[in-house]
Design a protein around this nucleic acid. Sequence first.
DNA 1: CTGAAAGCGCTAACAT
DNA 2: ATGTTAGCGCTTTCAG
Lengths: 344, 344
Amino acid sequence: MKNKSKRNSIKGIAAELGVSVTTVSFVLNGKAKEKRISEAVTKKILDYIELIGYRPNQLAQSLRTGKSKIIVFMVEDISNHFFSRLARIIEDIAYQKGYKVLFCSNENDDKKSLELIDLFKERQVDGFMIVPSPGIQDKIAALKAEKIPVVLCDRYFPDLDIDHVIIDNEKASYCACEHLIKNNFKNIALITTDVRQTQMLGRLEGYKKAMAAYQLPTNVLILPYKEKTTLQGKESITKFFYENPDLDAAFFTTNYLTKNGLAVIKESFPNALNKMGIVTFDDNELFTIYTPTITAVSQPLEEMAKELMKTMLALLKNPKVAHPPKKIVLKAKLVVRESSKVKE
Amino acid sequence: MKNKSKRNSIKGIAAELGVSVTTVSFVLNGKAKEKRISEAVTKKILDYIELIGYRPNQLAQSLRTGKSKIIVFMVEDISNHFFSRLARIIEDIAYQKGYKVLFCSNENDDKKSLELIDLFKERQVDGFMIVPSPGIQDKIAALKAEKIPVVLCDRYFPDLDIDHVIIDNEKASYCACEHLIKNNFKNIALITTDVRQTQMLGRLEGYKKAMAAYQLPTNVLILPYKEKTTLQGKESITKFFYENPDLDAAFFTTNYLTKNGLAVIKESFPNALNKMGIVTFDDNELFTIYTPTITAVSQPLEEMAKELMKTMLALLKNPKVAHPPKKIVLKAKLVVRESSKVKE
DNA sequence: CTGAAAGCGCTAACAT
DNA sequence: ATGTTAGCGCTTTCAG
């Protein structure tokens, strides 16, 4: 028997078949016709490759061509329902197009983001799809300057001309609030975080504009991002509700806040559950089976993932060429359920 | 100014500094002492590297060393809460140890699994952590034969001597059932899928044994895996409940079944919600705020991830050496909540 | 039509 | 103590 380990390379194949590596390489890359390799030789090579189940070493290929066929999808937290669902869709599209996706979580932390980006640059990934932490504007600009494909997602930097796909947060928020208002809620709280990135600012703005438009008071609770899952966070919400007994509705700007908020309501204000209007950003299947079912601003995950990949693939095709950045703004959908119904 | 693009390699640095590539390489790899490079030269190189922000090309490094520092974590569906949470923990540990993780979803489909494995082998990943689909036993054996590190997760192949980390499904299931029984439920349904892998078989077996031990009747609904999220799946559950009006409790063997089950109960049997005993496999924060709160078999995610990575790292350290496979069986925890309380 | 050879960036055995 | 050099496996230019 042959030395298997040695045969698994172009060189080995060439030696075995008595042809040159060039010929093998051409055949492998479908350039047989173009380079006018004889039918016979082509077939011989193809058959042999089939026989030994040869697959080219992607590492070597990447080193040579400078393309790794890997793209990075950096999110806040891959275990967050919103991001993991996005990731799943992106995965499918990418694999279809011959790309692998490296997922990673930056926890919305600048240091971690920067480290990760550098790490992946060393690895020569072909592009970055990033849900950016607040302070990495310069790094993103640097990537673009280096002609490395970058697409931002969920939030972006207004000062930067970088491709991005986001939703119209302000409008989505405005609509959600208006919906509550039209259902007779008059004292609506906004529960949000101290994150000062575009997505959250937009949601806050939408709320403020809606309240102003209908001349209603604003009641905003801003929680530190760090408390997103802590007991402390729950306590702050509890306190806020106690101090504002007149509230008749609550709008949560992101899914982890909603979890905490619902927990607080259940624990400390059980009566409120059916009296208060409740709307949340980010949908979840479980909201359809909650009692009451929860009204949610549902982001178009499928569409976002598609646009993201479309934009990325376009950049990948021509990374060196300057192009006007694609700024894609999608619409979210308000899924009306029981929790925001008119109460008597 | 210097030609930046050219300087970003060992060769460039060596040229710039008038030393040899070897010296640079040694310094880079912390072998300065060992190879007795002079302090002065070492410092000069280090400083220069710092200055230009040089980072070695991992691709080239990998090609040379044969190690890519990438491990694969293949799960059923990365958007499934159970798997995405596992992934998040694994990600952290891996990065700490200098590894990146490529996540992918096989949808419990053999064809997809095999394709993915081959894809990643071409990419020379260092190891595989796999939640295997039912029919890839041979492929797993082949990987092991090739001395490629593999660790299975969540389920395994009893005929194969492969490292794995799983939970004691039978016992977890038995305990859950026993808990229901002790709370006076006498007609307990098991709602499961037709997946015939160890994890599901264990859960079924635990149920059967518990029912036998307490001389209670069994009521098993087995749903096709394909219907896991379809309307069809819901209809089957509805039908099952209609045809078995005596049921006083339901045990769902996996999280997507629970979602469907709760939906069905809410839609078609709203009274049952507070009368029936309900227990589910796989915990979810939302279960703590559901009404009633839902009793769940909670898998030790943190511990699973840690053991997985520990096992993988051990293999990685010495891939060529035969070793007795580590078969790690963890215990799940029953988190008792309102849904399984004694009803009157 | 096919082959020889350079080179992607890095490591490490071998030489000095 | 530092330099020379041979590859890792592949693509591609240039020569026949």
